[in-house]
C-alpha cells in the first residue's frame, strides 16, 4: 500500500519558490490500476518521482508498505527502487550502447543475480512484451513502440509491486499507444502489480479503474 500524507514538494529558484506539490493526500492500494491526469506543469511527474523513491518530499510523509521513504537513507531508497518499483518513461531512457537484452537486464546487474539467470529472465520478459526476436538489436534499430516495450520489459524484470509509467505513450501514435496500454493492463491483471499511468489522453485514462486529477500541485476531487 502506498500512502501519501500531506506531501509537499518545493523547488527553490533563487528568490522564488516553486510549489510543485501542495499537500497531496492519497492512498493507493496494492494491485490498483490508476491514471493521473492534469495539465502540463501541474506536478504529475513530481508525484511519480516521490512515489518511486527518486525524490523526497520537502514536507509530509510517503509510506510504502510501512516504510517511510522520506526518512530512508540513499541506500534504502535504491533498494526500494531496485526491488519494488519499475519505471516507464515517456522518452524510453534506454542506453543506446547496450543491446535490447542488456538494457532489459540492467536492473538485475545491480542485484546479486547470476549472469545466466539475468539473461534467462530478460528473455522471458522480452518474450512477454512480444520482442523475443529482437534481443541483439540496439534501441536505435527499433521503432518507438518497440522501444517502449523494451522499457516496459525493463520495468518488469525485477517483478516489482509498483509500475510507474510517466506518459508512456506521449511519443507514440494512437494505435501503438493502445497496445502499450493493453500491455500495462495485462501486467496489472496477471501480475497483480500496482500500475500508475500519467497521461494527457482521456481515452487512455478511461481504460483504468481510477482516475485522479491534479492541478497546480494539488489533487481535485
Amino acid at each position: 500500500m502506498i500512502e501519501l500524507i500531506n506531501v509537499c514538494k518545493e523547488y527553490k529558484m533563487g528568490e522564488d519558490t516553486v510549489h510543485a506539490l501542495r499537500g497531496v493526500n492519497l492512498v493507493v492500494n496494492d494491485g490498483e490500476f490508476m491514471a493521473v491526469v492534469g495539465s502540463s506543469g501541474s506536478g504529475k511527474s513530481t508525484l511519480m518521482h516521490i512515489i518511486g523513491g527518486l525524490d523526497r518530499p520537502t514536507d509530509g510523509r510517503i509510506v510504502v508498505d510501512e516504510d517511510d521513504l522520506g526518512a530512508a537513507s540513499d541506500m534504502k531508497l535504491s533498494k526500494y527502487r531496485r526491488e519494488k518499483v519499475g519505471f516507464v518513461f515517456q522518452s524510453f531512457n534506454l542506453q543506446p550502447s547496450l543491446t535490447v537484452l542488456e538494457n532489459v537486464a540492467l536492473p538485475l546487474v545491480f542485484t546479486r543475480e547470476h549472469r545466466s539467470e539475468r539473461k534467462r529472465r530478460a528473455e522471458e520478459v522480452l518474450e512477454l512484451v512480444g520482442l523475443g526476436d529482437r534481443l541483439k538489436h540496439r534501441p536505435s534499430e527499433l521503432s518507438g513502440g518497440q522501444r517502449q516495450r523494451v522499457s516496459i520489459a525493463r520495468a518488469l524484470i525485477n517483478n516489482p509491486k509498483i509500475i510507474l509509467a510517466d506518459e508512456p505513450t506521449g511519443n507514440l501514435d494512437s494505435k501503438t499507444s493502445e497496445k502499450i496500454v493493453d500491455l500495462l493492463k495485462e501486467i496489472n491483471s496477471i501480475r497483480k502489480a500496482t500500475v500508475i499511468i500519467v497521461t494527457h489522453d482521456d481515452k487512455i485514462a478511461s481504460q483504468t479503474k481510477r482516475i485522479i486529477h491534479i492541478s497546480d500541485g494539488g489533487l481535485l476531487n
Partner: peptide, 13 residues
C-alpha cells in the same frame, strides 16, 4: 543521463 537511468533502476550511489 546514463547515470540517471542506472539510479532509477536501483543502482546505489
Amino acid at each position: 543521463r546514463e547515470i540517471g537511468i542506472m539510479k532509477a533502476v536501483g543502482a546505489t550511489n
